[in-house]
């Protein structure tokens, strides 16, 4: 798969700020970053309040997604360029989510907000208004989303990639180290999973590593290219980043994101859990 089909550079974005049919969307967990300054013309999506069901632990449904994109002024034919903070975690999650609901013309800004800011490119606090559309979503594409039963069945058979930090994988931490460590679930990882932290797929400036580096990374970790793969993390956002690397950049065919991730798995009764660094392969 060609990188140009799924990634754009910060330079490209700066040259295409006024291009008709291109919509820039900042996706964050904490939208105060957007409010303090965003790429000129970009609209924002709040990962927690707009992409998650407010009551059940799930996504907004198809109708909810249609309503959201219509209100944001995003049309079916628009080229959507996603970017965000946290090394594009939530932008990658939104990318996966757009794909899940069948929006094909979507790309990530390589490096996200970090690269944009480190480059010293312009940020705007101007309010952005886009005329509402009538967006139509497709049914969820089940080929890229894994659920818990499938994950349990995949132990020892499919590639399971745990993309959390080594300490979370080993069971020493329950969340990334910028978050408090209280949580109800058990610590550890899914047996037979290999630990390839999402961060290994990214350069320091947030851009993705080259395909050659990525291929070597996953091969060295013991991922079998001939097998199906399920990626997971804690809440499914970092694993969207790795899903992007495996499925969109490297073109591995059957790759799913387990969005329930450790928050669900570590709370299940009766499933096997492994502690420690796991087997090195």
């Amino acid at each position: 798969m060609s990188r140009e089909n799924v990634l754009v550079s910060a330079e490209w974005v700066e040259q295409n700020l006024e291009t008709p049919g291109v919509v820039f969307v900042e996706v964050d967990e904490d939208t105060t970053a957007y409010d303090a300054g965003h790429i000129p013309g970009a609209v924002k999506i709040d990962w927690k309040n707009e992409l998650q069901d407010p009551v059940r632990r799930d996504f907004v449904d198809r109708a909810g997604f249609e309503k959201l994109l219509s209100a944001k002024g995003i049309a079916n034919g628009d080229n959507v360029i996603l970017y965000g903070g946290n090394n594009n975690w939530f932008a990658a999650y939104a990318y996966w989510y757009f794909k899940l609901y069948g929006h094909d013309q979507v790309k990530l800004l390589d490096g996200g907000r970090k690269k944009w800011e480190l480059d010293g490119r312009p940020l705007s606090t101007e309010p952005v208004e886009r005329a509402a559309t009538s967006y139509t979503a497709k049914e969820q594409d089940a080929s890229i989303r894994a659920f818990r039963d499938e994950v349990v069945a995949a132990i020892g058979t499919k590639n399971l990639v745990d993309v959390r930090s080594p300490d979370e994988f080993a069971g020493k931490l329950l969340a990334p180290a910028h978050l408090p460590q209280e949580a109800a679930q058990r610590a550890g990882h899914i047996p037979s999973a290999v630990n390839v932290p999402w961060s290994k797929a990214a350069n320091e400036d947030g851009t993705f590593k080259s395909n050659e580096e990525l291929r070597a990374l996953y091969a060295e970790a013991g991922l079998d290219e001939g097998k199906s793969t399920i990626a997971y993390c804690r809440i499914g956002e970092r694993s969207s980043h790795t899903w992007f690397a495996l499925h969109e950049l490297l073109g591995y065919e059957d790759v799913k994101n387990y969005d329930g991730s450790w928050t669900e798995y570590g709370s299940l009764v009766g499933v096997p859990v492994e502690l420690g660094s796991g087997k090195e392969s």
Binding site: A33, N87, E117, P176, A177
Partner: peptide, 29 residues
Amino acid sequence: AFVRLLDSSGEFTAEVVSSAEGDFRFFAA
């Protein structure tokens, strides 16, 4: 500033953005 926490082996663990006063904070071990 983008502040990255690396563990004793140099592995990335977390990243935050420093506040207007330059502050950052991690919950580590």
